[in-house]
Amino acid sequence: MNSSDTVREGLIPLLPRLRRLARALAGQVADADDLVQIVLERALARAAQWRPDAALDKWVFAIARNAWRDELRARGRTQHLFAPEEAGEMAADRASAQPAQQLELAMALAALPPDHREVVALVLVEGMSYSEAAELLEVPVGTVTSRLARARATLQAHLGKDQ
């Protein structure tokens, strides 16, 4: 079996986790699955670059994070995919079906800057350690810690409103 087949078959069980990470990064279901598609295409195209001694999940998650950053740049939006006010308006459409706290969380996540959102996605959603996230993001562990602390403070302020 060549490396392309190994990567392709190894990606199948990772799809649910990849979709979860993409959802945490891109926010919307449609955008997230478009991101997953781009990630799968890139991973297959670069299968020869994957070394069997490296964890496939971390390799493909790094591709996902970089693809998401590329998309943000391509859209020319350096802060977030949509404005917080817009997120609130959209969330309000479904207010009757949503617990208030989930709405607050969704809005707060949507409003986080990319640096914070990707740390939340990797550590809180995917469950990586700080050092794993630091390696993937190519930043010092202290940077991960401080970004996560600030993201947490933002989220906590939103969640605290109705407590």
Binding site: R23, A24, A26, G27, Q28, V29, A30, D31, A32, D34, L35, I38, D70, E71, A74, R75, F82, A87, M90, A91, D93, R94, Q102, L105, A106, M107, L109, A110
Partner: peptide, 18 residues
């Protein structure tokens, strides 16, 4: 890229994923 396939999506789709 992301989103270009959904430009005609109804507004209802644009709910935060979470």
């Amino acid at each position: 890229g992301i989103g270009t396939t959904r430009r005609r999506a109804t507004r209802r789709w644009f709910v935060p994923g979470a």
